[in-house]
Design a protein around this nucleic acid. Structure first.
Length: 680
RNA sequence: GCGCCUUUAGCUCAGUUGGAUAGAGCGUCUGGCUACGAACCAGGAGGUCGCAGGUUCGAGUCCUGCAAGGCGCACCA
């Protein structure tokens, strides 16, 4: 872990600048990492920033700073470069010793409770690769926040009263003429989420055949929302089975949750009614009496930027006010309004979600009741909301200081509406801490769509991708993809490890499959549309999850063999390290970018990378960092033998370094939800 | 029409509050297995960072304009 040293250096440099140049105000400056270890381990570009105010050359300033910093613990020397940087070289043996022995612990974060909501798949069909991106991003966010000490509650929103569930009910009843008993039988006898996948696309076609059939859906929807009828019973059954199928799929990917939030409970427990009163009281919603929205309760939509935090807000207000004025003069006199309650009195999804968000911040004055839903494979309890009695042992849910909603970028408009509602109700802090973690969608490549037998519509033929559509039944199901990857990997494992049992091959194959798919979902930045291609996803070479796992496995093998051949354990290696000459680390190296120090130093940067990732919500940085670390390790591994190294002191330091790199690599992979197999 | 996103090597993408020689993977060409496992490593070729201005000691990164492509702007969720 590198952050503690960085903070200490930052403080010392600030003090040195203050004393040397007598500046009232020191501009904020960062501790950077030089491009390679030959230049140093930590770098400061602060001399460039000071050059103007001090009217001196950066190089001279850098030199003065370097000279004025006293000796620092852990720092061997400080140099000013001819280009104007101040670079620091760390004291290597103590650095490695502290980290390999686990003495250097990262700083603990003291942030308040955070809620991350992700996955939120409509409970009416199997999960596909589009959902996978959401869950992979969401779960990694949870892991990364917890790593730095933030308390996190993970929620999965279940839309059990929406049209999608209604559609499947219509399919069972009006197309297949099934009773509840029939549906139960089908659920027990088939892969129910797959069955519903096909049924759902059939329903879509059925509606297309005669638009009047949509009235059947409306009636089902009405029954679902009101409950206490046969439709609601069938809906509850279908939702429960599909949700459990989704949870099983996600568990395969090492993804779990703390709470399932059911939309039905939001209605039954009067959350919406409560939120509605508050919105009305503040004038955030009003009854429209004219135009095509007459009879609806609507919310005005603020156009333009609505950020309230920074000091440019006055200007921003000016601009948006001007924009509004122009708009009202313009040819479209109607202001933008979003319907919250329909003219028939039924609340829209937006209304229900508003109530949910208020609850998350503890602003609603109401709480759900809770039931234990399941115990997850990792041992964690999974709770669900209920309108019935609360079971004993339920933890305190909700009341967060910050919430992240992991939803694709198409929902940006609605997410902005949520923030607006919070501001209108005079909760600017909550509005600011309500974060839409948005990302672009996943589409299919033409080759993969063809492989799956989907016909490509004429209007989509020109596009380089095919949109995933649950409604049309077009998409790659997560379980199918995992099966494909697992079988391929298991076959390879069997080829390489002839002594493995079939079960072992399957187990390791599954771990590799998860590594491949989760890494694939994280290596692109959020704003990039992923064109999913099976061929590409099946690759295990190059920049892939299995490459990272392989590096960690290799590091592990060294210790298995060390124990096996020489009876030396990891603890033995570390025990006598402080008395071992450290030439391996300190002597001039002919390859400063791939030697022991380079790889150990790189491994220590995980905490810094995590901080950056949390700030930017850009997990490609974590993926790329881990890949780079594995690359550096692999290069080191090829060049520097450990088991066969003849000089005992060198061997010992290398082994200690590898132990640390292995631990950090394992941590980094864990943040991405990827396990390291014992062998592969 | 308005808003958001994207544009970097043949292809797919990284690029850390502006900073050191713009980097990976794939593909391609060359070389390396008597193994701490080649799911690997070393090396070559491959770039006008969409275009045009601007700010700065310094711009792939910030600002303005333009272009191309994607998404959104429902009494759907």
């Amino acid at each position: 872990m590198i952050l503690p040293i960085q903070r200490q250096v930052h403080a010392a440099v600030t003090e040195a600048i203050r004393q040397t140049f007598a500046l009232a105000e020191i501009p904020p400056f960062a501790i950077e990492t030089p491009p390679n270890r030959a230049l140093g381990d930590l770098a400061l570009a602060v001399a460039f920033q000071l050059a103007r105010t001090l009217r001196k050359a950066p190089r001279a300033i850098a030199q003065e700073i370097a000279d004025s910093i006293g000796p620092l613990p852990g720092v061997e020397r400080i140099v000013a470069t001819p280009t104007g940087y101040v670079n620091l070289f760390l004291e290597r043996p103590s650095f490695v010793l502290d980290r390999a022995s686990g003495r250097a612990v990262g700083a603990t974060n003291t942030e308040g409770k955070t809620i991350v909501e992700h996955t939120a798949i409509n409970p009416n069909k199997a999960a596909h690769v589009g959902h996978l991106r959401n869950a992979a991003l969401g779960d990694t966010l949870v892991r990364v926040l917890r790593f730095r000490g933030t308390p996190v509650e993970t929620q999965n929103y279940i839309d059990d009263t929406g049209v999608q569930v209604a559609d499947v009910i219509v399919g069972f009843r009006n197309i297949e003429h099934k009773s509840l008993a029939d549906v139960r039988h089908i659920a027990d006898a088939t892969r129910f989420d797959y069955y519903c996948w096909d049924l759902y696309s059939k329903v879509t076609e059925w509606y297309d055949g005669d638009k009047a059939r949509l009235e059947i859906r409306a009636a089902v929807l009405h029954d679902l929302e009101h409950g206490g009828n046969d439709t609601a019973v069938m809906g509850t059954f279908i939702v429960d089975r599909i949700v459990r199928a989704h949870l099983k799929t996600m568990a395969r990917l090492n993804i779990g949750y703390d709470l399932l939030t059911y939309e039905g409970d939001i209605l039954r427990l009067q959350f919406w009614a409560h939120a509605f009163e508050a919105l009305k009281a503040q004038g955030a919603v009003f009854m429209q009496t004219e135009g095509k929205l007459a009879g609806c309760w609507v919310m005005r939509i603020e156009e333009g930027d609505a950020r309230a935090s920074d000091d440019g807000s006055a200007q921003a207000d000016d601009r948006s006010a001007k924009a509004l004025a122009e708009r009202s003069d313009a040819d479209d006199p109607e202001q933008r309004e979003k319907v919250i309650v329909r003219s028939n009195g039924v609340v829209t999804y937006v209304g229900k979600d508003l109530a949910n968000q208020f609850w998350k911040f503890g602003l609603l004055g109401l709480d759900f009741r809770y039931r234990l839903f399941a115990t997850q494979p990792n041992g964690r309890s999974l709770w669900a909301t209920t309108s019935g009695e609360t079971e004993a042992g339920a933890p305190a849910f909700g009341r967060a200081q910050r919430i992240y909603n992991v939803i694709d970028s198409r929902q940006m408009y609605l997410q902005a509406l949520l923030s607006q509602a919070l501001r209108t109700l005079d909760h600017p802090k909550e509005a600011e801490n309500s974060i839409h973690f948005s990302y672009e969608m996943v589409a299919l490549s033409h080759a993969t769509a063809r492989e799956l037998g989907y016909e490509i519509a004429a209007d989509n033929a020109q596009k380089p991708f095919v949109e995933v559509s649950g409604r049309k039944g077009q998409g790659v199901k997560i379980d199918d993809l995992l099966d494909l990857l697992t079988n391929k990997a298991a076959k390879e494992v069997a080829r390489r490890n002839t002594e493995f049992t079939p079960e072992e091959c399957q187990h390791v194959g599954a771990q590799i499959a998860v590594g491949a798919i989760r890494y694939f979902m994280l290596k692109f930045s959020r704003g990039k549309l992923i064109v999913f291609d099976i061929e590409e996803a099946l690759s295990f070479e190059g920049e892939t999850g299995p490459y990272l796992q392989y590096a960690a496995v290799r590091a592990g093998n060294i210790f298995y063999k060390l124990q096996d051949r020489e009876g030396i354990s990891e603890a033995d290696v570390l025990a006598a390290l402080d008395r071992t000459p450290a030439d391996e680390l300190t002597a001039e190296s002919d390859d400063p970018t791939h030697d022991l120090w380079a790889v150990v130093f790189e491994a220590s940067r995980l905490d810094e990378v995590v901080e950056h990732v949390v700030r930017s919500l850009e997990f490609s940085g974590l993926a790329k960092y881990t890949f780079g670390l594995a690359q550096t390790f692999n290069a080191f591994y090829h060049r520097y033998p450990i088991l066969n190294e003849e000089q005992a002191d060198r061997k010992r330091w290398r082994a200690a370094g590898v132990a640390y790199v292995r631990a950090q690599l394992t941590r980094a992979l864990d943040l991405m939800g990827i396990e390291v197999p014992n062998r592969m």
